[in-house]
Computed example of a mutant assay.
Amino acid sequence: MTVCAIEMTTTAPFTIAPDGSYAARLAGEGEARYVERWTLAGPEPYAVPLPLAQPEEADSEVLPLADGRVLIHRRVADRHAFALLYPTGAAAGPRTGELQLGSVEAREGLRIGLLPPSPDGFRAFALAVTDAGTTLWRVAGGGFGPVARIPGRCSGGVWLDRAGRMLAVDRELDGTTKAVAVDLGCGEVSPLLQICEDSDDRLLLADPDSGLLLMRSDAPGEPRLGWGVLGSSLPVRFPECLRLEDAHPFAVQPGQALMPETCGVALRLPEGGLALWRPADRHVFRLGGPVGWLGGTGLWSAQGRLHLPYSTPEVPCGVVGMTPPVSPPPPVRLEPVPAPAARPIPLQQAPL
């Protein structure tokens, strides 16, 4: 495997659909920003710009859907507006079509952010957070409106199943932050992570196939990366090899049913660094991300290959694939050969 040089060209979010078919980002600079959709399912990736008559604001959020449309969340005057963008394919006229979905009134103290793409690829959700609590909104793929109301201030967002029904969020309530599970079917909220009574336990990543959970908790006495298994009675482990400063897991290998220890995990390090790890290896491989790595993100295939998007002047739309190195075997301890036991000598053979 070739180790690439480190050079982050942008830290702007680059969001990939769960099935790896499409991705989206805000491209451009300064006052000339526009939505750009990447097609990843073909033999070679390619980008399609989706500009409108008015440039997008730098704080707009985008999210790709499995049908090729891109959801955008904008702040428009006194409202948070949501719309779908798509290429029209027209030879003349606007190249980008826009379908308005709905909006939420912007109130003082209200913060709205898109959640990661739903596993089904067609729905999208957002968290609306105030001091009074959190509302989970469905903003695409069904009726526009609130789905669940959660006491406390919520952040994060990790999907726990392939159906897109169970969602984990980190809830700040009564001075501590704990990951809770939200059932989108009925709106019920239930505890998920409770390592210690007064610890802050945040869920960072989950793999529905194996049940592997990646979390950050201060239960060991300081914020540490740990891992566990969904539904398991075994305690959370905090490996020494994961004592990495400012490391953020961003991709986990799917398809490893009932084998969480074999799942590959990719972690983003400061200054564009990359680390690869498996729970079974107890070893972290530190690598360099590709030149022009976009957003410090990527997608892991079930075959164990990590795909990282990048953009350079020479290759404006590219994806590099890498396979984790083979973990070194555990050290072998050689026990000293014991000295032979003393054998008694018959009296007639004893030296005088």
Rank of each mutant, 00 (worst) to 15 (best):
G298N: 02
A17L: 01
F14H: 13
D198C: 08
E61G: 09
P331T: 08
G289K: 02
A339R: 14
A181M: 14
R123V: 03
R278I: 01
V70E: 03
L299I: 14
T323W: 10
L287G: 02
D183K: 07
D200Q: 13
G292F: 00
W277P: 01
M259N: 11
A106H: 14
P235K: 04
P208L: 03
G164S: 08
V48Y: 05
S311E: 00
L99D: 15
G185W: 00
Q349M: 14
T323M: 06
P119I: 01
F285A: 13
L40D: 01
R79N: 11
A148Y: 03
G187M: 05
G211C: 01
V236A: 12
C154E: 01
T11P: 05
P279A: 10
D161N: 04
L192P: 08
E44N: 11
I16C: 13
R149N: 13
H73C: 13
Y34C: 10
A66R: 12
W137K: 04
P351L: 10
S199Q: 00
P254S: 00
G295E: 06
R268H: 10
L267Q: 00
S103Q: 15
L184P: 07
P119E: 04
D67P: 09
P191V: 03
G141M: 00
G255Y: 05
A5L: 15
A91I: 13
E36C: 10
V291T: 12
R171W: 11
P220D: 05
Q348R: 15
S103G: 11
I16Q: 11
P87D: 06
D246W: 12
A32G: 09
A90M: 10
M215K: 05
C241A: 12
R95Q: 15
L71P: 06
H283Y: 13
W277H: 00
L192T: 06
R37M: 01
V236H: 05
A247S: 02
C4H: 15
L299A: 07
E271N: 15
L160C: 09
G28H: 05
Q348M: 14
R25L: 14
S232Y: 03
P64Q: 03
W293F: 03
I72F: 02
L203K: 05
P55F: 04
L244I: 09
T9E: 10
V129Y: 12
S232V: 02
P146Q: 00
P64V: 00
G143Q: 12
T177E: 11
G141K: 01
P324L: 02
A168I: 03
R107I: 07
G97N: 09
G121P: 06
R305T: 14
T2H: 14
T130E: 14
A47R: 10
A12P: 06
F250I: 01
P94E: 11
G273F: 07
E44H: 13
L308C: 05
D131Q: 15
T39C: 09
A17S: 15
T135D: 11
D161M: 01
M215W: 04
P340H: 08
A124K: 09
I195R: 04
A266S: 08
A23T: 11
R75A: 13
T135K: 05
A206G: 00
G295V: 01
V229D: 04
V139L: 05
P330M: 08
P340M: 10
F125A: 04
